[in-house]
Nucleic acid binder design. Sequence first.
DNA 1: CTCACGATCAGCT
DNA 2: GCTGATCGTGAGG
Length: 263
Amino acid sequence: MSATRGGSAARPSPAAHALRPLPREFFERQVLVVARDLLGRLIVRRVGRTLLVARIVEVEAYGGLGTDPSAHSFRGETPRCRVMFGPAGHAYVYSTHQGRCCLNVSAVGDARGQAVLLRAAEPLHGEQAMRAARLAGLADGPTRTRLLAGRAPHELLSGPARLCTALGVDRRLDGADLCRDDGPLWIADALSGADSGAADGFGPGADPGAAVRAVWTPRVGLNPKSASFGWHWRSFLADSRAVSAPRGLSAATRRPAPAAIRR
DNA sequence: CTCACGATCAGCT
DNA sequence: GCTGATCGTGAGG
């Protein structure tokens, strides 16, 4: 097996200072604002001595108790969604079909059960480890062939469960504090060459999403006739290839940011 | 690239 | 029991 394209083996480790965790206050804002500002940020996973780093390109906001029928927290706290009701900036990891997991970040912290689902990311560092993690659970088929050949890096984390598989995130990380860099998982500023002033006060790579085109659509997997389908609470970077498959929602339903959080 | 299909199970009522 | 905040496959542009 040889490194073909990309040359990721030669990629230097990200500078430690650039991987500083975002502060708690980042997550203690309106859930749509947190969702918007997570685009372009980095998700950092520590596995032993290795750091895996990926750039977040797609998110969904989930309102909470009594307000958002498609949120796990809609009917109140249960053992599964307990973290959604706790302090902001913690990982809510739940399992779906076939042993797959999805990763959310608790937001606001007002005990109303609000969170942001991380739906897709682009590998920045540790791509080979992510590829290996995806391959581990893949039967023979076109997808395995593509990944084995070292192709399609944009498919490695292009979906909420793929993202978890590639980063080795499972229910054992449920409740992890995402604001500390001595743990297994955190969210960091974007790597930025420019030390331009922070537009939103959250670090040197502040507001990375503002520099790129973010669009909003209905959330994936909802019944189109449900009321909340009209809420455009999914956001992604329009120019990223790593956005998850239901781009179909994009063409007809893309919108600018909801008025409530537009600047 | 897009679409439809269904495997398979935790979590909830 | 019933229900998905999904994914990989396979067919068709």
